[in-house]
Structures are given as structure tokens and as C-alpha cells.
Design a binder for these strands. Structure first.
Lengths: 305, 305
DNA sequence: ATCACCCATACCGCCAGGGTATCAATGCCG
DNA sequence: CGGCATTGATACCCTGGCGGTATGGGTGAT
């Protein structure tokens, strides 16, 4: 059985995600016939049926499900090799730190100070990304280390928790629910979350009627908070964020039974760089040295109203 | 920066391992010029120098070292995708168990019995491999689960230790050292180990003068034991193996300070198959149910003489 | 029954990538 | 110090794999 090629995996993943040869071909910027042929060739090569296709429907077989999972991680590993080699070849290497802006619990400046004092420190470079993109940034080599929320998809990663805070929900101050001091998850039924919100992390406590798709796309925190102020969406945030972004038009309220939000430092499992080790050390000591009460805001005292 | 292709990674790894374009080309079954061009193109694509080359010498740059490591894991991930998809597409899927013959501590039959009783069990299929090939077999998808010795290169793997035994050294009965009841690592200085022996696992206690290359290639245990009997080599083995393969011509002796040999069950970190879980469960309960004294042979009572 | 949709097949053209021949730089040795 | 062997780089050619266009054929909806 000859070796697979990256192109074949990309094609397969596109079709498996779209479940439609035409759309997948468009996404790959190619015509549909060569794509169909390539998938057929792949199936012959693996001696396996990957798709159950009729002229009206395309579905993954069990073998296809397996390949989808493994193909994604293989593609991540390949692009990681490219990114890391490119990075290692730069004349001035840097430590690329992935994080979601405003979700660092206010620790970032102190962590960076402690990190800068380490002997093995390289100049830091922030890699900003949306909700839940940090793990993938580590896996595909765009970043060397990350600050992220647990739990997350940690395949191939190691992590160390830094601090745990209460998760609050941000509501418009005019919202009827803002009059109450604490909420139940069911109270939020039917509300909308910002686009790309962490549906995964909150799934256990989130009623299914809470949709993670907002009418309008909001990429940064101010846009999201503006949408909250107008009552278009609600938004889950760790207590530290609530404390650092008080707004008159927004009320932060605890939700009964909502899982805590844990900030962690994470890195690729096979990382060997001393700069990564230095950053992890800096992050852990900074978190340990930070007075816990200031960060574990008690749920009965919402930060703004 | 365009995506890398598997072919480029294979070429790079070959050159990085051979540090010689001609030999690498021969290994890849191609001519040297296209290989040189491909590597140059790769360097342009990554905007990085991977090799420092003169006409007489080829050396890896730091970026090249990074890429070598990542390229190997990426290639493993790609072949894993192929192997697992192929396996998942078989009409009669099986659980592929990797192990080194005769190093299972005698637990295998009982583990297989316990496993067969599990509801999620698939028919087992043994994948035999040499020393230390088990981790790679898991990573590249040739096996679903493995019995192996710790410590090992466990990147991407999870493992659960099953039992720890004393490590003994096998000597010819006629060897002067066989007259003694216990040895010191330095006593073995200058002896040869069988080809492909676990130099890594024993490195801490092994004097550097102990060479892991034998004059003759020996693939299976009987061949190795024959070489031991003739005094050609010495051989490290867990106590259970010594107990199960007593030979008049061979003396097993404890070595002071030699690390214990730990048998573990291991599996790919992202494994989701219920059959793997069933096997791990079976292995752990079997090991727990096995009377410890029978397996933790006391070092002061060598099994044969 | 017709139509629209969508995957498969047939056929064509291009260029990426491999082969051969050769050059050029380097270290060895007489 | 000058040939010589070694080895990576360059020049040039050619083949086959891959993508494009045109079209077929099967299926579900109205």
C-alpha cells in the first residue's frame, strides 16, 4: 500500500466535512470531477469504502469516520512541521504565545514580567485567536505555548492549571433577569451566544435551546459587549473579565450550576524548547503568588450592575 | 507558504538521516539530482536553511533538527491514518496487539482470556516486533494496543504499568562471572548485547563500553539464548523470562543497580475504540489479580545456574 | 413525465518531478 | 604542487499524474 499524500488527505477532509463533492471542490478551488476521481483512487489505495454515495446523498462510512479523525491530526502534524521549521529558521526566534484577548485573567502582564527574568527567555510574540483556537494553534505549530480555558480538546497537549474562577453571564442591564442576583441555566433558554462561542466548554450546563450562532458576527470583546448592551446576545465570562470590563449597561450574574472557568498554560506534549519551559515556570509561579481571593470572586457579589 | 507534501518530508528525513545526498537517493530508490533539487525547493518554501553543505560534508542546521523531529512524527501520523482507515474498513475488524515475544511476563494468555470475556472484545491479532518497536507500531497505526517495557518513547501514547520485575543478565554458565551470585554493571564492561537491544532503557546503568551491536544478527529469543550459551553475548531479561526459559547452559544473575523492568499496557492517546478500552481493562485486572510474589522474583535467587 | 441536481466517465493538455549528462568545488595523495 | 576521486549543483529532456471541460446517467421532487 503506497504512502498517502497530503493532497489526498486535504481532499478527503473537505468532502467529509461538506458531504458534497461539488461544494468540497469549490472549497478546494478545483473542479468536481478530479475530486471525485481522487477520492475513488484513495478508496482503492486503502482498499476501503470511505463514503456511501447516492446521487442525492453522501455519507461517511465507519472507516471514513476513523480516517476523518486521523487525517485531521495528520494534517495538523504536517503543518506543524512546516511552521516550526520556518520559525526555527528565523534569525531572531521568538516565543509565540497563543491566547484569547481579555481571557487571560489579568495575569498576562505579570507572567510576561516573570518570564522576561528567566535566562532562557526569547522575546515573546502574542498570537491572538478566537474561542478554542488555542489548542489547534499549538498542534499546528502556529504557537509554542498558550493560555487557554479548560476543559478543551487537549489531544497532544500538556497543560497546567493556573487559576479557577466563577463563570458569570453578561446580560443587558435592562434585561428582566438582571434584576435577580442569581440565575438558573434554564432562565437563559432561547438567548443567543456570540458567534463562535465556547459551546463545547459549556455544553454540560447549557440548555440546548441556547444557540451559539448570533445574528451578527463579533470578533473582539468590545463588539461582543456592545451586542450584550443592546440585549442581542448573552455572553459567558470568567469573573476576572467581568471585574476588568465593568459597563453601566451590562450586568454580570452568576448562574447556578455553571461549571467554573479554569485558566491554564498549555504546550505541545513533545515540546523541548527551554523557552517554553521558562514560560510555563513563570506562569505557574505567577499564578501561585497571586492572592487567590482576588481572583476567586465570590458568586454572590456580581462585579457590576 | 504552501502546504508541505509527504514526499518532501520523506526526502528530507532520508537526507537528514544519511547526511549524504547520494546514499539518501539510493535509499529512496531515485537519482541524486532530483533529490538535491527537492531539498533546495523545500528550503525555499520554508524560507530556511536546513542543511549546511560543502561538497565534502552535509550537516543539519538547528532548523533542520527541529524539522527532523517534527517530520518524523508527521510521517507517523500520516501512515497511521492510512493503516487505521484500512483496518477500520476490513469486513472483520480485529484488535491488533503489539508485543515483543517472550517479554510479556507470562501474562498474555490470562490477559487474552479476560479480554475475550469482555462484551466489546474483537478477535485479537498479535503484531510481533523487535525491541522498542511497539511504541512506533502504535503511533503509525500498525497496532491498536501494546504490551511493552517502560520506560520507552511514549510521545502520543498513554500507558498503565502492569508489573515490575527485577532485571537479570543472562550469561553463559561457563562464564567466570556466573560463579558469583550478584554482579556490578562494571563487571559487564566490554561484553556485547544482541543486535537491536534496548540500549535506551538500560542506558542509565549500562557502562558505555557495553556495545548494543552483536557480530551476528539474532531476531528471536532462541537465537539470542544460543548466542548467550556460546558466550558470544550477554543479554538483559526480566525475571519472568528467566523463569520461563531456564537452560542448563545459561546463568541468570542480578546486577546491582540495574533498573527494574516494568511491563505496561499502552495505547494511542486519542484511541476511542471500546475494544482497546476492554483490553486495557482486562490487562490491568489480570495484573492486579496475579499474586505479586510469583512475579517479583527476589533478586537473590537467580532462576537457573 | 419532466426537470434539476449531482456524482461518474471520457478525453485532453500541461507541468511537476524524475532521469541522464555534466560541471564545479573540495580534500587527498603522490 | 598537480592530478584524481568524491560529491553536490546545474542544464536539459521527457514522461505520467493531475486537473480541466464536456457529457452521461441515476434519483428525487413537483
Amino acid at each position: 500500500m503506497g504512502d498517502l499524500e497530503v493532497r489526498q488527505l486535504r481532499y478527503f477532509v473537505a468532502v467529509a466535512e461538506e458531504l458534497h463533492f461539488g461544494r468540497a471542490a469549490a472549497r478546494l478551488d478545483m473542479a468536481q470531477p478530479p475530486l471525485s476521481r481522487a477520492i475513488r483512487a484513495l478508496e482503492r489505495q486503502l482498499d476501503t469504502t470511505l463514503f456511501e454515495r447516492t446521487t442525492r446523498q453522501v455519507a461517511l462510512t465507519p472507516a471514513g469516520e476513523v480516517l476523518l479523525r486521523d487525517a485531521r491530526t495528520a494534517l495538523e502534524a504536517v503543518t506543524a512541521a512546516a511552521h516550526r521549521a520556518h520559525q526555527a529558521g528565523r534569525t531572531a526566534p521568538r516565543l509565540r504565545i497563543a491566547l484569547k484577548a481579555d481571557l487571560d485573567g489579568g495575569l498576562l502582564p505579570r507572567i510576561l514580567d516573570a518570564y522576561a527574568a528567566e535566562a532562557a527567555a526569547l522575546p515573546p510574540e502574542l498570537v491572538l485567536g478566537g474561542y478554542g483556537e488555542q489548542p489547534q494553534a499549538l498542534r499546528d505549530g502556529r504557537a509554542d505555548v498558550a493560555l487557554l480555558q479548560l476543559p478543551c480538546d487537549d489531544r497532544g497537549l500538556d497543560s497546567e492549571p493556573l487559576l479557577t474562577e466563577t463563570t458569570l453571564v453578561a446580560l443587558a442591564a435592562t434585561d428582566p433577569l438582571a434584576a435577580r442576583t442569581a440565575l438558573h441555566p434554564d432562565d437563559l433558554s432561547g438567548r443567543e451566544l456570540p458567534d463562535g462561542a465556547p459551546a463545547d466548554g459549556l455544553r454540560p450546563a447549557r440548555p440546548s435551546s441556547l444557540r451559539p450562532t448570533a445574528a451578527r458576527r463579533a470578533s473582539n470583546l468590545s463588539e461582543i459587549l456592545s451586542l450584550v448592551e443592546t440585549g442581542s446576545i448573552v455572553f459567558f465570562a470568567p469573573a476576572s473579565l467581568a471585574r476588568r470590563h465593568p459597563r453601566p449597561g451590562i450586568a454580570y450574574r452568576p448562574v447556578h450550576g455553571l461549571p467554573d472557568s479554569t485558566l491554564a498554560v498549555a504546550w505541545p506534549q513533545d515540546a523541548r524548547s527551554p523557552a517554553v519551559a521558562a514560560f510555563v515556570r513563570a506562569a505557574c509561579t505567577t499564578a501561585a503568588a497571586t492572592p487567590a481571593p482576588a481572583h476567586r470572586t465570590a458568586p454572590h457579589r456580581p462585579a457590576a450592575s
